[in-house]
């Protein structure tokens, strides 16, 4: 429990080691999570998402530098897709935040998308809690907006910033259904490139169809040159005020607490079932029968369900 003491005092090494513990589900990790839950819930979580190459890391870097001017402690969790072939990964988001690694008020952690026993979203949410207790007032979670677990992560943020680049016409069509809904602030980065205004118009048109109470604005930025950063911060603030004023802030936290509990239940049920020897052999046996067309998969599934004792 030395680490927990350290964490509460704002020790970086302790925070880092605890995140590793959660990521690897080292024995005792649940006790840690139980312990820190009480003191978490203070940080404001900002999700940064968008397609690869949109400049998310650079934008995060600039946003954080701006927020640091208010002397607020900041943490960043940068999630990088893992190589689908080797299981290893190269996490390179940090490279765009190099100056931040000398700022004592900033903590950056990179996470791969593989190798999380309980799923990435569970690990990320736990890491957020740790960084919250560590004392971060703002936590940025940066991730490519693809894949179910990443969308879940982004959904759990208080404010989500969707980063787009000009000339993504078809991509916008493709992602509008899923991701457009979760954006609270829209940014067109690299806005000095051709087609920025068109992309903006397209996004605005789609947002017009949404009937949500909060109308997100579309902001132009050239993150590399630090252009448009203050605008985005103002927009994040506007969203934050809206959340607080309408009590959405509380409401969202209820939703995500509930989701978290459900997730823990689901995960543990799955673990229990598939780690059970009897069920494993029953499953193997029934699978053979399904393949031979002796029984159908529905009957097989319900047969197994019947023999489960929780």
């Amino acid at each position: 429990m030395d680490l927990l003491q350290g964490l509460k005092k704002g020790n970086k090494r302790a925070a880092a080691k605890l995140i590793t513990m959660i990521e690897n589900r080292t024995e005792g990790y649940q006790d840690v999570l139980k312990e820190i839950h009480k003191s978490s819930g203070k940080a404001y979580v900002i999700g940064i998402t968008g397609p690869p190459g949109a400049g998310k890391s650079t934008l995060t870097d600039k946003l954080v530098k701006e927020i640091r001017k208010q002397d607020k402690k900041v943490a960043i969790i940068a999630i990088d897709p893992t190589s689908p072939f080797s299981g290893g990964s190269i996490l390179g988001d940090r490279i765009r935040m190099n100056d931040l690694s000398l700022d004592p008020g900033v903590f950056i952690r990179s996470m791969g998308t593989r190798g999380h026993l309980g799923g990435l979203s569970v690990a990320t949410k736990s890491a957020i809690k740790i960084l919250d207790v560590y004392g971060a007032e703002y936590i940025f979670v940066e991730t490519v907006g693809v894949g179910q677990s990443e969308i879940e992560i982004v959904k759990s943020a208080d404010t989500t910033v969707m980063v787009m680049v000009p000339g993504l016409g078809d991509d916008i069509q493709a992602i509008k259904a899923g991701i457009m809904e979760i954006g609270d602030v829209f940014v067109i980065n690299k806005a000095d490139r051709d087609g920025a205004n068109r992309t903006r118009a397209e996004i605005e048109m789609m947002l017009d169809f949404s009937n949500s109470e909060f109308k997100p604005a579309v902001k132009m930025a050239v993150a590399v040159d630090g252009k448009g950063i203050n605008d985005i911060i103002d927009e994040i603030e506007r969203h934050k005020e809206y959340l607080i004023k309408t009590d959405k802030y509380h409401h969202n936290r209820v939703t995500s607490a509930r989701e978290e509990i459900v997730e823990i239940i689901k995960e543990n049920i799955t673990d229990k079932i598939f780690n059970d020897h009897l069920i494993s052999s029953q499953l193997a046996e029934l699978t053979q029968k399904v393949v031979k067309r002796e029984i159908d998969p529905y009957t097989a599934g319900f047969n197994i369900l019947k023999s489960i004792k929780l």
Binding site: G87, G88, S89, I90, L91, G92, R94, I95
Partner: peptide, 8 residues
């Protein structure tokens, strides 16, 4: 199979 953090 390692997780590499590349800082450039």
């Amino acid at each position: 199979g390692m997780e590499v953090i590349y800082t450039g």
